[in-house]
Design a protein around this nucleic acid. Sequence first.
DNA 1: GTGAAAGCGCTAACAG
DNA 2: CTGTTAGCGCTTTCAC
Lengths: 350, 350
Amino acid sequence: MTKKTPTSHGPTIHDIAKAAGVSKSTVSLVLTRSPLAKPSTAAKVLEVAKSLGYVYNRSAANLRQRNSNVVGVIVNDLVNPFFVELLIGAERVLQQSGYITLMAHTAESLATQEKVLASMREQNAAGVILSPAFDSPSDLPERIQEWGLPLVVAVRSLGDNSRYDFVGSDNVTGMRLATQHLIAQGHRRIAFIGRKAGSVVSEERRSGYASALAEGGITPRPEWLIDAPVSLSGGQTALDTLLALPDRPTAVVCYNDLVAMGVLNELGRKGLQAGRDLAVVGFDNIASAAHSNPPLTTMDVTPERQGEIASRVLLDRIGRPDDAPRRHLIAPQLIVRASSVGVGILVRTG
Amino acid sequence: MTKKTPTSHGPTIHDIAKAAGVSKSTVSLVLTRSPLAKPSTAAKVLEVAKSLGYVYNRSAANLRQRNSNVVGVIVNDLVNPFFVELLIGAERVLQQSGYITLMAHTAESLATQEKVLASMREQNAAGVILSPAFDSPSDLPERIQEWGLPLVVAVRSLGDNSRYDFVGSDNVTGMRLATQHLIAQGHRRIAFIGRKAGSVVSEERRSGYASALAEGGITPRPEWLIDAPVSLSGGQTALDTLLALPDRPTAVVCYNDLVAMGVLNELGRKGLQAGRDLAVVGFDNIASAAHSNPPLTTMDVTPERQGEIASRVLLDRIGRPDDAPRRHLIAPQLIVRASSVGVGILVRTG
DNA sequence: GTGAAAGCGCTAACAG
DNA sequence: CTGTTAGCGCTTTCAC
């Protein structure tokens, strides 16, 4: 294995200074691209640095400057492509801005969430984007802010949401539009599959569903609310419940695309067809929603863009810590695909 | 916004030492859980630290110790769940071992790959797990090793693969088994959908396919090799090509599950049924393969476990830099689901 | 523009 | 077991 002898520690600015015949400070100025350095010396220093195989030591710089160029991105569920897309968007912007991403996955565990937050604090992260785990305490954002750690909360809001930066979807409106779409197609018996309790997002989406029914003059029946884990298999089993209902619903809105795709798959397995036998609508517009069978009607909330926005908001917050908190709600757009309209009436395959 | 005055920098071990009536070094020993500290003093120091709201400064420690507790995980394609699962596995193990994950996504761009590698080097990462972007130079592993940066290459091997640690799948054997499964089902016209050129992994999988055909006494026809991007939509369009073939194949092995699921979806859209009209086999066994419609027969290569193994190998490498390089090839397991067997003959829904 | 000197917060010898 | 001392590699006044 070719490898430098581990005892030889690379050159430092001190070595460069000697070799280039200038002082340490000058080298530092050049390296940080300060305008205080004369172009000619800068060129020389850079050349010497390169020839010596110099590697900038960011830990030392960070220690001295009392800051760092890493930002934490903490997500609660990487199994859901929504969060992966958000992560991709966030990471891209951060990378372009010269930051590097400390990624952590809590898998909805509060304990790991605490651990990774503490870790990012010790690491002296420049800031954190947090998509909180289920049942996160409502004072979590304030606690993090008290640490002096710039914070953007994403996806799920927590407690008094006027006191921290937030980026998420307008879930109420989104689910109202989704439900209205089904009503407009003539459906009167519309079920909702999602988590019954717990998450704010669930509450919001269910309330959007409820208000659309009300506006459409439809009296909701309690059995239309089908409780299920928000996953592929959750959607699959929920469909059985739905199909067994007396006065079977003709349409269903799902908490998210994952659930909806579970429903789609299970329909297929039963020889039924989404669109014809049951209208199905999802939420999120994850990439694979356009490629399901049939393609899934859903509410587009541009997950990747949410990640980008979260990063931008965080960078602003880092730059101006005392600005008023901002709230960035994505307005969901209805994307009609075949899963919610009669076969052959396919409106858009996006 | 509640927030500490930004000018007040938290307490240091010096403050703790004063408050606890001991020396800085003692505090340091306690904080690093050294056995050299007397339990009674340790308890006291810890208590003082807590009451002062002390936060350990890892950058300072890292600088002094010339090491760090971050390890880089660089993946080339987060859109493919395979890599997400690998990332999840890697991150979990690293987190448990007290490391924190610097995540980077290259999206197959060599330029960003270079940038993030340089960044991790400046960051003084303890090590790196790299799933290389397409067309990475074959001397990349050596270059990284020359930096003195512990490295594990994952998924795609590069150049002389006996000179660095590698974790990946036995693609040749895997694809041979997949193809043999189809032959055993009585198929004689079996297509392969995948990338024609470029990646090592493609080559390996195609060669496994070819040798299974040979062993089965089947003369391969060139038109059975269908070139396609390895994505859902790649699979979708490839199916059209396949169906248009004279003497249409009765079965197809796909480069990976993503491609296979594209095929499945497109079949459904055409009113055809996987298993009955065309036997379909994937590769990877991503989580959603069990939930597709119909469930997908595939070769399980335990992506999450590959991530875990990669982390373990890296931790070993960090601990013993001069051990001989290790090569960890996962033996793919055939998982038979409905997509490859006549309807009703479903063997296992796993 | 450039140099000298003083730390950032921590750890690692080495004495005691 | 605990204290003293000397840096890790960099940035940043402040003189010149």
